[in-house]
Lab assay of single mutants.
Amino acid sequence: MASQGTKRSYEQMETDGERQNATEIRASVGKMIDGIGRFYIQMCTELKLSDYEGRLIQNSLTIERMVLSAFDERRNKYLEEHPSAGKDPKKTGGPIYKRVDRKWMRELVLYDKEEIRRIWRQANNGDDATAGLTHMMIWHSNLNDTTYQRTRALVRTGMDPRMCSLMQGSTLPRRSGAAGAAVKGVGTMVMELIRMIKRGINDRNFWRGENGRKTRSAYERMCNILKGKFQTAAQRAMMDQVRESRNPGNAEIEDLIFLARSALILRGSVAHKSCLPACVYGPAVASGYDFEKEGYSLVGIDPFKLLQNSQVYSLIRPNENPAHKSQLVWMACNSAAFEDLRVLSFIRGTKVSPRGKLSTRGVQIASNENMDAMESSTLELRSRYWAIRTRSGGNTNQQRASAGQISVQPAFSVQRNLPFDKPTIMAAFTGNTEGRTSDMRAEIIRMMEGAKPEEMSFQGRGVFELSDERAANPIVPSFDMSNEGSYFFGDNAEEYDN
């Protein structure tokens, strides 16, 4: 993207840094990872977990959730003011799984939030270390993106479920800051804005008074975040219109849905970061690795190297396929839920299948599930090659597409044709070009129609051997075009429920 120079890199967003050079960025990201790792080690000690239990991804998720809940100030305040039966607002906890007599047992633990905050700050040299908290939120978000298709949420806001490739980060909490905003897809931002506008339509006082002023500035800020994701002048001009509207209503909703559809071809720039579970960072720190000293990046080879040398386990339900569970977590670790499966298959070195073909449910185990038949197995999170994460949407291309997802959002900077089903997408653009945004709409449609099938995206960008740390010898991959490109292809993934 041309304006790259004016933006802070995501590592800076990730670490609240002012302008830093590459070495400083690597050190501050490393410091953040160190903090998460030290916190995780301490929690495993508190909970008396064995090494194996500490490497269980379900335990990692519970521990991450506990610290996120302990620092969720708004919710904590709300819980104190609106006490609900049987919930102690000062405590947080969740299921911890232990191996007892050759069987997995679930144990519900409860801790004072104050105590968890103390352990977290102690692991982070006394700081609140917001960057580390956001990092864990993005890992949870990436896992949700890989596990669930947001059909219901899309339909509720009037969008087409086939636009799911635009929904990265749709389950990120509001408090995820600049680093969170960077990884949100165009569809996620559109959905947040539509929800806001709908509230304004239904509630006369939404934009009024002292609160209304705050609401208005939040609305304009979200519009600017979305505008910054678009790469064409016409899309940005249309966002200006939406932002400046005196009284946002149905016309703005129409414009936003139009823009979301246009992003299936004229893709937005959305950041991709490899955020790993805390149970990967903990053992690495415990083994003596100093992330701050060595430096770390979320968008280069580092996460690949770390996963190459990590042992992570997962509980497996009786009829689940461990290899499929591994694929789910591998995609989440690489922030690749909406990437082209052919690119992923090449990088991973084994075939990556669409969601609907995987015999696996989510990673988390519900409290009512029976533990008797639970097994555990090693997650295979290694890769054959590594590639640089991208934040450009890439230019655009036609490809055989599917009944489910009709476009992709690249996660890796790797040369390819970008699949999208042009006739299906263009069919949504018939007729409606009147109104105050008509010239911009016409211009956007013209650009979409001009998108050429034979153009290559990320020209000359390749993948790298894991021994090639400096990215000196790019390998331009070859793809098996007979395979499906979309992950949520004609899909039956479970729906995400809060």
Rank of each mutant, 00 (worst) to 15 (best):
residue 2 A to C: 10
residue 4 Q to S: 00
residue 4 Q to G: 05
residue 5 G to F: 09
residue 5 G to A: 01
residue 13 M to W: 10
residue 13 M to N: 05
residue 15 T to S: 03
residue 15 T to Y: 05
residue 16 D to E: 13
residue 18 E to T: 02
residue 20 Q to H: 04
residue 22 A to C: 06
residue 24 E to H: 03
residue 25 I to E: 09
residue 27 A to H: 00
residue 28 S to Q: 02
residue 36 I to Y: 10
residue 39 F to K: 07
residue 45 T to V: 00
residue 51 D to I: 00
residue 54 G to Y: 06
residue 55 R to A: 03
residue 61 L to C: 13
residue 62 T to N: 15
residue 69 S to I: 06
residue 70 A to N: 09
residue 77 K to C: 01
residue 80 E to V: 03
residue 83 P to Q: 00
residue 83 P to T: 02
residue 89 P to W: 04
residue 93 G to W: 11
residue 95 P to R: 01
residue 96 I to V: 05
residue 97 Y to S: 15
residue 97 Y to Q: 08
residue 105 M to K: 15
residue 106 R to K: 02
residue 112 D to R: 04
residue 114 E to L: 01
residue 116 I to Y: 12
residue 117 R to G: 15
residue 121 R to H: 14
residue 125 N to I: 13
residue 129 A to R: 12
residue 131 A to D: 05
residue 132 G to Q: 03
residue 133 L to K: 15
residue 139 W to F: 10
residue 143 L to S: 12
residue 161 P to D: 01
residue 165 S to K: 05
residue 169 G to F: 13
residue 169 G to L: 04
residue 172 L to Y: 10
residue 174 R to V: 10
residue 175 R to N: 09
residue 175 R to H: 14
residue 178 A to I: 09
residue 180 G to T: 10
residue 181 A to W: 13
residue 188 T to Q: 07
residue 189 M to T: 03
residue 193 L to V: 03
residue 196 M to W: 12
residue 196 M to V: 12
residue 197 I to D: 08
residue 201 I to D: 07
residue 202 N to Q: 01
residue 205 N to T: 00
residue 205 N to E: 04
residue 213 R to P: 01
residue 215 T to H: 12
residue 217 S to W: 02
residue 219 Y to C: 03
residue 219 Y to T: 08
residue 219 Y to F: 14
residue 221 R to S: 12
residue 227 K to M: 11
residue 227 K to N: 15
residue 228 G to P: 13
residue 230 F to I: 08
residue 231 Q to W: 09
residue 231 Q to T: 05
residue 232 T to I: 14
residue 234 A to N: 12
residue 238 M to E: 02
residue 238 M to L: 09
residue 242 V to H: 10
residue 242 V to Y: 10
residue 244 E to Q: 07
residue 246 R to P: 01
residue 247 N to H: 05
residue 251 A to Y: 10
residue 253 I to V: 14
residue 256 L to E: 08
residue 260 A to D: 10
residue 261 R to E: 12
residue 262 S to W: 10
residue 263 A to L: 09
residue 263 A to P: 04
residue 268 G to H: 08
residue 269 S to R: 10
residue 270 V to P: 10
residue 272 H to A: 11
residue 276 L to P: 13
residue 278 A to G: 08
residue 291 F to M: 12
residue 292 E to I: 12
residue 299 V to P: 07
residue 302 D to C: 08
residue 306 L to F: 06
residue 309 N to S: 01
residue 310 S to E: 09
residue 312 V to C: 00
residue 316 I to S: 13
residue 316 I to E: 10
residue 321 N to R: 00
residue 322 P to V: 14
residue 324 H to P: 12
residue 330 W to C: 09
residue 333 C to W: 15
residue 334 N to W: 06
residue 339 E to H: 06
residue 351 K to W: 08
residue 353 S to T: 08
residue 353 S to Q: 09
residue 355 R to P: 10
residue 361 R to A: 13
residue 361 R to M: 10
residue 364 Q to N: 15
residue 365 I to R: 05
residue 373 A to V: 03
residue 375 E to V: 03
residue 376 S to A: 00
residue 378 T to F: 07
residue 379 L to M: 15
residue 391 R to A: 15
residue 395 N to A: 00
residue 398 Q to S: 00
residue 399 Q to A: 04
residue 401 A to D: 06
residue 403 A to L: 00
residue 408 V to E: 15
residue 414 V to N: 10
residue 415 Q to E: 03
residue 418 L to S: 10
residue 421 D to H: 15
residue 424 T to P: 01
residue 426 M to V: 14
residue 427 A to H: 15
residue 428 A to N: 04
residue 435 G to D: 11
residue 438 S to M: 03
residue 439 D to Y: 03
residue 443 E to M: 10
residue 443 E to W: 10
residue 447 M to F: 15
residue 452 K to V: 01
residue 455 E to G: 06
residue 458 F to N: 01
residue 463 V to D: 13
residue 464 F to C: 03
residue 467 S to N: 01
residue 467 S to M: 14
residue 469 E to I: 15
residue 475 I to W: 07
residue 477 P to Y: 11
residue 480 D to F: 03
residue 483 N to Q: 01
residue 496 Y to I: 03
